[in-house]
Design a binder for these strands. Structure first.
Lengths: 239, 239
DNA sequence: AGCCCGGTGTGATGCTTATCACACCGGGGT
DNA sequence: ACCCCGGTGTGATAAGCATCACACCGGGCT
């Protein structure tokens, strides 16, 4: 079956191949079946907005496929990207639990498959399934942990260079590239978006990349980036 | 009964006068009794460290009396205060749930009364009491929300003045001073600590206060601060 | 082919703020 | 009464970065 946006829809969480890793997926079958009954399988094109910061919470969005940009935005239009959500994450969870407005804006950057659950349904589900509730607490802890890292990065860094180095190192720690001496990574974001991730300006990011290349610390062909001197990067990151 | 630090200990959560407002306090009596059985009532002097960022989680600390400074710290000694915890808050919750290291350092700034619960005991308690588990999820959402505000303040502000104005307005919104035209508040922190709350230097805070006084926006006698021009402050805060 | 447009490279300029350096002040302790 | 010391005021200096302003480049469209 093909969705409108060329995605192959995973019809049921019971047969989902990602079950092992994902958050709600390794619950007892009874709970999973209950979840199955209240979720709506949906799909979104690239650039779709799942929810906007400040809206009162409609429910949760379980990301099954694709990536979603999670950001906050100031009154004067400046944007800060907190993270790029990957499959398995539950978006809008904290707002849905607490009833307060969504604290972030969620916008797809790929075609995405998403399971949506209405707030009332979800809260009832939690009351009835204690183990799911614990899973939610774990997931919230994860998010909190993440936010703390962001705070650390924004609040305790001395320079934009330091923050960029941290970001590159974090990215290089994905997909088993972590161990490699010269890890390779895909640059899936524009300079503008990277700037929004580290709270600086687009020009600064461009200049920093230029300097890193000049100093032979990184090297790029197309959208692939090769880290040639991990030690130097770590030094810049202040650790 | 008097504790070593001159605090009157609330012996049982069952008879705690703060029951209504506080997090674990309005649970069904059965759950409360179970909590009663696993908690250790403790007291700390001013300046005590409950836990340090990076330690693996021993358990949760329910703050009953006094205030606790929650902070992160960089390798080079720079400190950022995320919040001053008030009675009713559960400290170390996210780390205890997830099993990851404490992400913050908790240090008392008053003599404090604290209920400590060991991690294993607490996790078992959560499994057995679904309603408590939901309460934990709510509390974690609260913390996440808080962290998001911190991120917004640090990441989207243009100047230290903006952040200080935001902080003063937030403080002025406590104890029913919110509605007043010229709210009054107690300055319980040093310039150094305020600087650490908004991620700037001590000197900058001193200078900003001097400027606010010169511009007749605030006025201070002793440790009391009077906001004389709330509108101007709001303007500075960028809203 | 030519155009358009989002993304990128780069200089000049000025503001904000960190940092160092030092004076001052007031309260507690000896 | 003295000293000590944490907290506060204030100047000078320089670094870091935002901002504005443009040039350039490459891919998709017509």
């Amino acid at each position: 079956m093909l969705s409108p946006y060329g995605l192959e829809i995973v019809e049921s969480c019971l047969t989902c191949k990602l079950r092992e890793e994902l958050i709600f997926c390794d619950l007892p079958n009874s709970a999973l079946q209950a979840f199955e009954n209240i979720k709506y399988a949906t799909a979104y094109p690239k650039g779709a907005v799942l929810f906007v910061e400040g809206q009162s919470p409609r429910g949760i969005f379980v990301l099954c496929k694709g990536r979603v940009k999670m950001s906050i935005c100031s009154t004067d239009g400046k944007t800060l990207i907190l993270k790029i959500a990957e499959p398995g994450e539950v978006l809008g969870l904290s707002a849905t639990v607490s009833g307060k407005p969504y604290e972030l804006t969620a916008e797809t950057i790929d075609p995405c498959q998403v399971n949506f659950v209405k707030r009332e349904d979800f809260l009832r589900f939690l009351k009835e399934h204690g183990d799911a509730c614990f899973r939610v607490a774990e997931q919230l802890s994860e998010k909190y942990n993440n936010a703390c890292h962001e705070v650390r990065s924004l609040g305790l860094s001395h320079s934009a260079a330091e923050k960029l180095a941290k970001l590159l190192l974090e990215w290089s720690g994905r997909n088993g590239e972590a161990a490699k001496l010269e890890p390779r990574l895909k640059l899936a974001l524009t300079h503008e978006e990277i700037a929004q991730m580290i709270g600086t300006s687009r020009e600064t990011v461009t200049r920093l990349f230029a300097e890193l290349k000049k100093r032979q610390i990184i090297q790029s062909k197309g959208s692939t980036l090769l880290i040639r001197n991990k030690a130097a990067l770590k030094l810049m990151a202040g650790a």
